[in-house]
Amino acid sequence: MGQKVPNLPALTDDCSRCAALCCVAYPFEEDEDFAILKDVDTPCPNLSDTCFDCTIHASLKSRGFGGCIAYSCAGAGQRVTQELFDGETWRDDPDLLTHMTHALRVLRPIHEALAILLEAQKLPLPPEVQMELTAKITALCPDDPKSIWAFEDAQVQDALADVPTFVRSLAPYVA
């Protein structure tokens, strides 16, 4: 099992601590995953006007929103809302909208990569590969995780770009 990594975030969704960033940040293409066309950085019309709840959550599949069901931010949404923006939301301050959605689009791939790398720690890896794995996880967890710039840093982005190649190199250790 891998070493403990400082600044390792929660990698599971907690929508109650988020500002519905996924319902705003990403565009929808009108197809089998989304019943409507929606632009980037635009709130979904199914988002409640008074809170950050989906007004059709109970019937997403039957209403043509399978993409919403399949989506996971791997904890990036609540991290953006609670840590990077101290609990403020784009509804509190509309000027925050594009900053928060940009932060989600930067953090989500990092969180997804961390989730994959943490799963890889369960593999029977030789010590040198385990050390490399721990180094990659550490590189994706910057020392000052309170600023989006920490995640846009070249070291973090280079580590993120290297994850697919590194994960493919683990194939011989998968039973």
Rank of each mutant, 00 (worst) to 15 (best):
F85H: 05
T101Y: 13
P142D: 00
T89G: 01
G2H: 06
T81E: 00
I110D: 02
C54N: 14
L11A: 08
P164H: 05
A161N: 07
L140E: 02
P124M: 03
A19T: 15
R79C: 00
P45K: 10
A175Q: 13
A58P: 08
P172F: 06
G64V: 08
G64P: 11
F85D: 00
K4E: 02
L97P: 08
C68Q: 08
D33K: 10
S72T: 15
L21V: 13
W149S: 13
P124C: 03
P9N: 12
E88V: 05
A135D: 01
A20W: 09
H99N: 10
R79F: 09
P142K: 09
C18P: 14
L118F: 04
A70L: 13
C68K: 06
A135I: 00
G87T: 08
A154H: 08
G77E: 01
A10Y: 06
Q121M: 11
V163C: 01
H111S: 11
G64K: 14
P142Q: 03
S147V: 11
F166K: 09
A70Q: 14
T138C: 01
C15P: 13
L47N: 10
A19G: 05
D39S: 15
A103V: 05
A103R: 07
P127T: 10
R63Q: 12
A74Y: 15
A58H: 12
I110H: 08
P127M: 06
A135M: 01
T89K: 03
R168S: 13
F85N: 03
G75N: 12
G87P: 12
A74G: 11
I137Q: 11
L107W: 04
G64W: 10
